[in-house]
Design a protein around this nucleic acid. Sequence first.
DNA 1: TCCTTAACAGTAATGATTACTTTTATTAAT
DNA 2: ATTAATAAAAGTAATCATTACTGTTAAGGA
Lengths: 131, 131
Amino acid sequence: MATLRRYSRQRERIYQAVHASREHPSAQMVYDLLREELPRLSLGTVYRNLHQMAQEGMLQELEGPTARFDACLAPHAHIRCTCCGRVMDLSALEEPAPVRSAAEAGWQVERYSLMLEGICPACAGKDHNEF
Amino acid sequence: MATLRRYSRQRERIYQAVHASREHPSAQMVYDLLREELPRLSLGTVYRNLHQMAQEGMLQELEGPTARFDACLAPHAHIRCTCCGRVMDLSALEEPAPVRSAAEAGWQVERYSLMLEGICPACAGKDHNEF
DNA sequence: TCCTTAACAGTAATGATTACTTTTATTAAT
DNA sequence: ATTAATAAAAGTAATCATTACTGTTAAGGA
């Protein structure tokens, strides 16, 4: 009987790509990063593995128009630039109050995300997009 | 010269539908709610108006796989049931710390959302989905 | 009334994501 | 080593939410 193969080559590299990147990459970004090294990699494989790993708690998945992934599991917030799309980390040491109040109201809180939106210093610098 | 018609009949009813609902409706839900009353309403019109109103600050748009809208502008958090999809409010009186720290780092914070996920009391009761 | 134009309906197109079908490749037992 | 069993992959098709596009409608001012 075949045993679970937890770590296929592709899965391993997909995880490493997210872990190595500070960009909070999307599935497409991971795919693009790995195409050269793994020419036979398929986008579906990237999606499948990212979601599996998110479900297993190895990665966290960030909300937004397109999903982004983060290998850093320590609780922290994120901010996305509405101008260039960049996603950055913000430290968040203490748990927001609503997490506790949801639990007290009988919810089984599985995860939470604090996502900010705004204009990053770089984009604010070049005062407004010139396209 | 024609003046801005800020409040067309459709736009008016779309706003009211969101305002009247406690469901944090999606565009599709608003469309379904209004079809009977406005048989010629188009889904594109619903999307367009919801986004316009969100941009004008009349509504807030919630993150997630499909966008949900909320006419309550007071700062508060949301929790979505991973089982039934229901979205509920959570009060959040104080601003989370990362909002200030992003501003201090030079971001122009436009908005933020605290979104929780978990299993709602009702779903937890009927221990696990029977489909 | 006639002109201008915002907003509309209807539909086509896009983009992210998921599902499906076939192939590959790893493991375990023979 | 060969084979059988199966998890994971590739490749592709389908779905779903959303956006864009192309006329059409209709309200307000001249």
